[in-house]
Simulated assay, not measured.
Amino acid sequence: MHPELNLQLMDTHAGGDVSRIVTGGIMQLPGATVRAQMEYLRDEADGLRRLLLEEPYGIPEMSVDLLVPPTDPEAAAGYIIMEVMGYPIYSGSNTICTATAVLEAGIVPKREGWQSFALEAPAGLVHIDALVHDGVVEAITCGGLPSYIHTYRTSIHVPSIGDVTYSVAYSGGFYALVDAASLGFSLHLNEERKLAECAYHIIEAIQAERGFSHYTLGDVGPLPFLHFMGPLEQLSDHFYRSRSATYVHPGVICRSTTGTGTSARLALMNYEGLIKPGDRLETVSLRETGFIGKFTGVRQEGDHEVVENTITGKSYVLSRADIVVNCDDPMVDCGGLTHILTSAHPE
């Protein structure tokens, strides 16, 4: 018999994407920065990610965010993002959910009106503006990663689909950006399965043909994401809207439009001369949820025009729970996990 092992969770969602915030039960991870702690978790303790994203505890469409003590003195908390594809250094929806959880857990006391604080992601310090009304967190605005266009309107032949025109943006990960209408999609919920299948074939073809390198980070792995873009509607002089869908993994279209997908679209709109600083874009998902990206500035980095931006959305708390990790359960793999659980190491 194994001892009873426990994790404390707060389940949240932003735009439909569920983020499981791990608020307790994990030992202090080694590493001088949150990025280094993420690398330790990835290399030495991947069991936590697999436990909470696989049956019987979770599903691949979820994300996990582990709260850790910050290493930057300006940050109120650190967080490590875990998804089915691995450990992204940044995510807009996960940041919105984590910021909400930090407020709901009292790590940052709630104050009525707007308040500001910082979180430390593996990508670095993230500025947060939170709106609280009658004790409810109504909106989170977080800084998106600087984004740029790597490749503009190139073409690839995809078996079973034909020739596909795409651009590539970096916004925390490399994204293929494709026009949904050109592939026969109107971006509604009944197309979800076909969108996932189509994106899978396009990503497989791109990965087989070429790789991408960030101008400072270098090789960050094969291109993983695809963002389907709907028609752009101009609602006012400075406000645009577009239906959108983001593919992240075989079979998985995000419930939300994703913060990094929205940042990638802003980078493309800037590249095409469609927006200027101060303009906003609302991306609308298959489930009619949305994030608002704001183009806040641009700077030149070598050959690239880099777009600075923010992402605004709302997160909802779904549950607070203790998870019992039963290592005697044949469906539970405790490998790469027990050595970081505090309940496995009683004092």
Rank of each mutant, 00 (worst) to 15 (best):
L5W: 04
N6P: 01
N6F: 14
Q8F: 08
L9Y: 05
D17F: 04
T23H: 10
G24A: 03
I26T: 03
R35M: 13
M38H: 06
Y40I: 09
L41T: 09
E44S: 12
L53F: 01
E61C: 12
E61L: 15
S63A: 13
P70S: 09
D72F: 05
D72W: 03
P73K: 06
A75F: 05
A76K: 12
I80V: 08
P88L: 07
N94A: 13
N94V: 12
N94M: 13
K110N: 04
G113H: 03
G113F: 02
W114D: 15
L119G: 01
P122D: 10
L125M: 01
H127L: 14
L131I: 00
V136L: 08
E138F: 10
T141K: 12
C142V: 13
G143C: 10
G144Q: 11
L145D: 07
Y152C: 12
S167C: 01
S171H: 09
Y175D: 08
L189M: 13
N190H: 15
E191A: 06
E192Y: 09
E197H: 08
F212V: 02
L217Y: 10
H227G: 14
M229I: 10
G230N: 04
L232Q: 11
Y240A: 05
P250N: 07
P250V: 06
I253T: 00
N270M: 14
G273A: 11
I275T: 11
F291W: 01
F291P: 01
Q300N: 14
T310E: 09
I311V: 12
K314N: 13
S315N: 08
V317T: 12
N326H: 11
N326I: 01
G336T: 01
L337Y: 05
L341Y: 00
T342W: 00
H345G: 03
